[in-house]
């Protein structure tokens, strides 16, 4: 455990040394300032119709999501980009030799790196979301604590994508393939499968194709659903309305990580 914490902590150091994460942090600060300016200088509350007063909670919530969603999306894309080289750098000749010569098991080393990457993104996302939430809460005196749960959904989405990056990083010792697959899954495959499963499949006759879509849908992680519906439900206080996307995605994460560890344990350096 101590070993994992050491590696995690030093992975955090590694991330802080990267410019991308600084950039990420700057974006968060700018967003928070921007939100603050809009809320306090423009009198945005006037856009709410007087009759809507009773439902200010929902309105504020939607506004919060409106600001936070695109920024978290950008942050996720940046995080994938910047964390993609963690594993390949660790596997470089002269670096991995030294790490493996220490009394640390290969599982501990890999898990430490994995948690390190997640911790960085978690801290960044938490900073951003907390900041925006605080400004809204102060302005409208509505303290919707459940909005903060989105910190965990976003971090969870990143963990899934990062596990893919780790797996391909170990196999190819380079960042390109893993990064491409993560982007592909996040931006194209996951939204496409969601649409195929819930909109298109009503129109499809062939049970074979239907089965195929089902298989792909249930097997692959549902990042776009988590980013959309799950996130929104949580933020607006409805809690988790459907556990399936979370559980099946978690299963995928565990599987990917398990395969990564299995390959890493046998690899020659």
């Amino acid at each position: 455990m101590k070993n994992i914490i050491t590696v995690t902590w030093y992975s955090l150091r590694e991330a802080l040394a990267r410019k991308v994460f600084i950039f990420f942090f700057v974006i968060s600060i700018l967003t928070i300032i921007f939100v603050g300016l809009i809320l306090y200088l423009t009198g945005i509350e006037k856009i709410f119709a007087p009759g809507m007063q009773s439902d200010v909670f929902t309105a504020v919530n939607s506004l919060e999501m409106m600001f936070v969603s695109p920024i978290t999306l950008i942050c996720l894309l940046l995080s994938i980009f910047s964390s993609a080289s963690f594993i390949p750098i660790m596997l470089e000749k002269g670096n991995i030799d030294l790490l493996l010569s220490k009394p640390i098991s290969r599982e501990q080393l890999l898990l430490g790196k994995f948690f390190g990457g997640i911790l960085v993104v978690f801290l960044n996302i938490a900073f951003l979301i907390l900041g925006v939430w605080l400004i809204f809460s102060l302005k409208f005196s509505i303290w919707n604590f459940e909005f903060l749960l989105t910190i965990f959904t976003i971090t969870f989405i990143f963990s899934i994508l990062y596990s893919i990056i780790v797996l391909f990083g170990i196999i190819t010792k380079s960042s390109t393939l893993g990064m491409m697959i993560a982007y592909l899954l996040f931006l194209i495959v996951s939204p496409a499968l969601y649409t195929a499963k819930y909109t298109l499949s009503v129109l499809i006759q062939s049970s074979f194709i239907k089965g195929l879509i089902d298989f792909a849908y249930y097997f692959l992680p549902k990042t776009s659903e988590l980013m959309g519906k799950t996130n929104y439900d949580l933020a607006s206080g409805h809690g988790i309305t459907n556990y399936q996307p979370i559980l099946t995605s978690l299963l995928f994460l565990v599987l990917t990580l398990g395969i990564s560890v299995a390959i890493f344990r046998k690899k020659d350096f």
């Binding site: 030093y10 150091r13 000749k93």
Partner: peptide, 10 residues
């Protein structure tokens, strides 16, 4: 090790 590398930012 030969050709050992250390994290350059440390």
């Amino acid at each position: 090790p030969e050709n050992h590398k250390y994290p350059p930012y440390l």
